[in-house]
Nucleic acid binder design. Structure first.
Length: 256
DNA sequence: TATAATGTTTGAAC
DNA sequence: AGTTCAAACATTAT
């Protein structure tokens, strides 16, 4: 269900519980849930697709994976994975991956890689791309170590915007193409966030789950691509397959 | 109604 | 030892 922007929205909704004490904690998460009782939530953070519920000395890492969901001051008719009750309401998670981690998030996360963070650093993404010549772009755009928070929708929409075939190789992109890709992906994540808050995100899908290409009107191709083996939705006419290594540097060196 | 899907981790098999 | 790949988790929209 969630890519990074959706998790930021979750964090914002959960922030009414910052500074509040856990009155009771229940659920079938495989952590010591009892230990949460009486503890005070310091703050909620996100990193990529993860929600971090920060306490003094430890934090809960919540990942909704594909089918996870949450409710605030509301229950669903299914077993709850983790339910935290506070004086001013409750926070419930279903089908989520829940871990309790000792220490501080700062010890384990680098927010310069998080597309939704104020600390996002496009130069870091560029440095990663420079070392991934043999990788397919469809894999790199869902790689959380490169673009934390980006997911399959972001991947497909960004590839359409930059008119690039999902099976293109990173090594076939020029420096400018890589920088443009990074800039556009980051902007798309921010747009995603605003569109989602306005309940209009799906209206902006151009290629993901579309039947015909909005640009040239031919049918959209759907194919599992890359090592990640996730489905790509793309236009074979509008999105160019780039697989030839750019070797301008070597050629220059040889000619010199 | 059957299928696919905004995702990740684990562990077996090469 | 490094990689590949299926399995597992489990709901819901179409």
């Amino acid at each position: 269900m969630p890519e990074g922007p959706s998790i930021v929205i979750l964090k914002e909704e959960a922030q009414i519980f910052e500074g509040k004490k856990v009155l009771s904690a229940i659920g079938n998460a495989k952590i010591d849930i009892e230990s949460l009782k009486g503890k005070t939530v310091i703050e909620f953070k996100t990193w990529g697709k993860q929600l971090l519920i920060c306490f003094n000395g430890f934090y809960i890492r919540v990942h909704l994976l594909l089918f996870g969901s949450y409710r605030i001051n509301e229950k669903r008719d299914m077993p709850v994975r983790l339910s935290l009750k506070f004086k001013n309401g409750e926070l419930n998670f279903y089908n989520a991956s829940v871990q309790l981690v000792m220490g501080k998030p700062e010890d384990n996360y680098d927010w310069e890689l998080d597309t939704m963070s104020d600390e996002w650093n496009s130069e870091r993404a560029f440095q990663s791309l420079q070392k991934m010549d043999k990788a397919m772009i469809c894999d790199v755009l869902v790689n959380q170590d490169v673009f934390a928070g980006s997911g399959n929708i972001v991947k497909n929409e960004v590839l359409f915007i930059i008119r690039t075939h999902p099976e293109s190789l990173i090594g076939a992109l020029s420096v400018k193409e890589k920088k443009d890709l990074i800039k556009i992906l980051h902007k798309y994540c921010l747009d995603f966030y605003h569109w989602k808050k306005a309940f209009e995100f799906k209206l902006h899908w151009q290629i993901y789950k579309q039947r015909i290409c909005p640009r040239c009107k031919i049918p959209v191709t759907v194919k599992k691509t890359g090592l990640s083996n996730r489905k790509s939705h793309f236009c074979t006419s509008c999105q160019e397959l780039k697989i030839k290594q750019k070797r301008a540097r070597q050629r220059q060196a040889t000619e010199a």
